[in-house]
Amino acid sequence: MRNHKLNTYGTFCNLFNKSLIVLYAFYKLSFSKDTFFKLRRMMLLLICVISFVYPFIDFPVWTD
């Protein structure tokens, strides 16, 4: 049982980190020269939320 939890946590951390890297790279490419500070702050917070929620979404269910 303990090994299963560790595997699930490891999978979560792996997906979280990958999505955070990809979304932050998109943010840097899109908003690096932008001067709208409120929009940039909102996008960073949204990136954090999406990266946290992304591992919980089950995409194979959507393809059926």
Rank of each mutant, 00 (worst) to 15 (best):
F52N: 05
G10W: 14
F16P: 02
L20A: 06
D34S: 13
C13P: 02
Y27H: 05
Y24R: 04
T63L: 09
C48D: 10
I47F: 01
V22N: 07
T63W: 04
P60L: 02
F26I: 05
F36H: 15
T63Y: 06
N14F: 14
H4W: 07
L29N: 05
F52C: 06
L20M: 09
F36D: 15
V53N: 01
V49H: 03
V49R: 03
V49K: 05
Y9N: 11
L39K: 15
L23I: 03
F36M: 12
M1R: 07
Y54H: 10
I50K: 06
Y27L: 01
I21E: 10
L39C: 07
L15K: 14
H4L: 13
V22A: 14
D58Y: 08
F56W: 02
G10M: 13
F12S: 02
C48H: 04
P55N: 00
K5Q: 12
N14Y: 13
S32T: 09
N17L: 13
N7F: 11
N7E: 14
M1D: 09
S19G: 01
M43T: 06
W62A: 11
M1P: 06
R2I: 12
I21W: 08
L44A: 02
M43N: 02
V22K: 13
F59L: 10
M1A: 10
Y24G: 02
I57P: 00
Y9I: 15
F36I: 12
L15F: 05
R41H: 05
F16Y: 15
I50M: 10
V22D: 07
L44K: 07
L23W: 03
S19N: 15
D64W: 05
G10T: 15
F59R: 03
H4Y: 07
S19C: 12
V22H: 10
N3S: 10
G10N: 15
T63R: 08
A25Q: 03
V49S: 08
